[in-house]
């Protein structure tokens, strides 16, 4: 009993140190966010302080009034939702079909198809950007959802991820279904896709997050304010407000961060398995 108490006592400084370190590093990492929250709550001042000078007069209403100050924020959020959802559904659809053919069919040129899919990962976005911009401009797809969505609805990463997952599912199931007269298309959508929910969830969270956070492409192919996405919107907002109204600017930035923060907290497991599938298995 005595010895046990002794162990416990000696561990208290250790725990204090660990918690101290954890809290300190957390505060440092969170400080830019706390700073932006502090600016948002201070009201329309041109010389804000780091911490709100009067904690009893915090302007929480800013998170609602910012929608009146900048009526387009709602439209930007809608645009981002449509684009991120469209890209996510498209990537899941094209990747499942492609990966299904790679994993289950036996045909000449299979390796070549895999190379075409993975080769797309070798070409950086910047190297295709200018020609893609010209293409979208020629097709008169500036300021349209198709211009924001379609270039991204195929993903070498998604194909690879789905293929690896399909290969872990028992082949006997496929053969049995074929003997029972199920056709291949029905097998994919009625058996394989429901069985692959973990991989699809991973791909969905990963794709949605990346698309929501896109900046360069929407900046180029939207040029009217109502077609901006959230990421471009908050920076345009910054420039035409002249950078002087810190509170609305910070409130808008924090609002457009919410969907991805929520996704991170709810879909953390899927996200981590998506990220690590590139690092550990790749």
């Amino acid at each position: 009993m005595n010895a046990y108490a002794g162990v416990r006592q000696s561990r208290i400084p250790y725990f204090a140190m660990v918690y101290g370190l954890l809290i300190l590093t957390s505060l440092i990492l969170l400080s830019p966010l706390l700073f932006s929250l502090s600016l948002a709550l201070q009201g329309p001042t041109i010389s804000p302080s780091l911490l709100p000078p009067d904690l009893s007069k915090l302007d929480w209403g800013i998170f609602l009034s910012v929608f009146q100050d900048e009526p387009l924020i709602a439209r930007w959020i809608l645009n981002s939702f449509v684009v991120a959802t469209g890209v996510t559904l498209g990537v899941i659809f094209t990747s499942s079909l492609f990966a299904y053919a790679l994993a289950y069919f036996n045909f000449p040129g299979k390796t070549l198809l895999l190379f075409v899919a993975l080769g797309s990962l070798m070409i950086p976005f910047e190297a295709t950007l200018i020609a893609n911009y010209l293409l979208i401009a020629e097709w008169k797809w500036m300021n349209t959802y198709q211009g924001l969505i379609l270039p991204f609805v195929a993903s070498g990463f998604g194909i690879f991820l789905m293929r690896q997952y399909f290969l872990t599912l028992p082949r006997e199931l496929y053969d049995a279904a074929m003997v029972d007269g199920c056709n291949r298309f029905r097998y994919l959508w009625l058996v394989l896709v429901p069985l692959s929910r973990p991989a699809i969830a991973t791909l969905a969270v990963y794709t949605f997050l990346n698309t929501w956070n896109q900046f360069y492409w929407p900046l180029l192919i939207t040029n009217t304010n109502e077609w901006r996405t959230t990421q471009v919107g908050i920076t345009i907002f910054r420039s035409f407000e002249g950078g002087a109204v810190f509170n609305t600017q910070m409130a808008a930035t924090l609002i457009v961060m919410l969907p991805t923060l929520l996704l991170l907290i709810l879909g953390q497991r899927q996200l981590v398995s998506g990220l690590t599938s590139g690092a550990l298995k790749g």
Binding site: L29, L33, L39, F215, V232, G243, L264
Partner: peptide, 27 residues
């Protein structure tokens, strides 16, 4: 979760916040 948090914060959001951190008006 706190250490992972910056995954969810886009470069654009981070850029807007840090531009104010570096803005002399906010000190």
């Amino acid at each position: 979760t706190i250490f992972t948090g910056s995954i969810a914060i886009s470069l654009a959001s981070a850029g807007v916040i840090w531009s104010l951190l570096y803005n002399p008006a906010t000190k």
